[in-house]
Design a protein around this nucleic acid. Structure first.
Length: 259
DNA sequence: ATGACGGTGTGGCACCGA
């Protein structure tokens, strides 16, 4: 059983790369962020031919999230229930697996631009609403995975320049406290359950040869609930798609569970 | 301090991302 997350920065542009990646990495489910298209433009048919059905929460131009799955999805929820968020940033669904139902919560977390900005305030409010909802969601669905583009580098080792970038967006104490609060709900960073290469990142700036110089951040995460933790076998970042022509600035991250 | 790259929109640059 494999679940992956990938911010593809426009599904319109990246659909061929998504199909190629799924062909080489036939994961059970792939959570996408930054579709940048409305629901009516979503390529259901093409993905179905590749063996995946999709639960979609699209938005024109910005944001947009989807869960692709080889098996049926049910109990789909779009955005945090009760929130009045105008942006399409969360989609949750349940996947039936041999080990029982698996609740997937796919998030495109707010960027936040800079501490002190209105967007940063929105980020803090958004993170709080997510946390409040997840507490209940975890109680209802013990086997839960929270994954996506968190837009938070949780620790200094998750940044190429933790000193120079200290206190800037993705690196602030407030953002990191929110990440820790998610862990405190009983979630575990699957990537850090294993020995990993140093300077492991999931995003690299398009500019200034960021990828070539490995000037990146680890901001795409897969958190697993306590009930799932014993079943986690591996977690890896796949840097290969970042070497494609016209790559996304993010790399996919995959978690492997024992069946 | 700024912009560098890339995507989208109805564009001739502005906005956004991270």
């Amino acid at each position: 059983m494999q679940i992956a997350t990938w911010n593809i920065n426009s599904l319109t542009v990246r659909l061929p790369q998504v199909l190629a990646w799924l062909s080489a990495n036939p994961v059970d489910a792939l959570c996408l962020q930054e579709l940048k298209l409305s629901d009516d433009k979503f390529p259901h048919e093409t993905l179905r031919e590749a063996g995946y059905e999709a639960a979609v929460f699209g938005q024109k131009t910005y944001n947009g999230v989807a869960i692709l799955s080889r098996r049926p999805l049910h109990d789909v929820v779009r955005n945090v229930p009760g929130s009045s968020d105008a942006q399409a940033r969360v989609i949750a669904a349940t996947l039936e697996t041999p080990g029982g139902p698996l609740r997937l919560v796919n998030g495109y977390f707010v960027n936040g631009q800079a501490p002190g900005s209105d967007k940063f305030t929105y980020k803090m409010q958004w993170l709080q609403a997510l946390q409040d909802w997840l507490r209940a969601e975890l109680a209802a669905h013990p086997r839960l995975v929270l994954l996506g583009d968190f837009n938070v580098a949780p620790e200094d080792r998750d940044s190429y320049d933790p000193v120079g970038l200290a206190g800037t967006i993705h690196h602030t104490a407030e953002e990191r406290a929110h990440f820790q609060a998610l862990l405190a709900l009983g979630l575990h960073d699957a990537y850090r359950m294993f020995d990993q290469p140093e300077k492991s990142y999931s995003w690299w700036d398009y500019r200034m040869l960021g990828f070539q110089k490995n000037r990146g951040l680890r901001i795409d995460h897969i958190l697993v609930s306590e009930a799932l933790r014993p079943a986690v076998r591996a977690c890896a970042i796949d840097r290969a798609p970042r070497k494609n022509p016209q790559p996304s600035d993010h790399a996919p991250v995959t978690v492997t569970f024992a069946d």
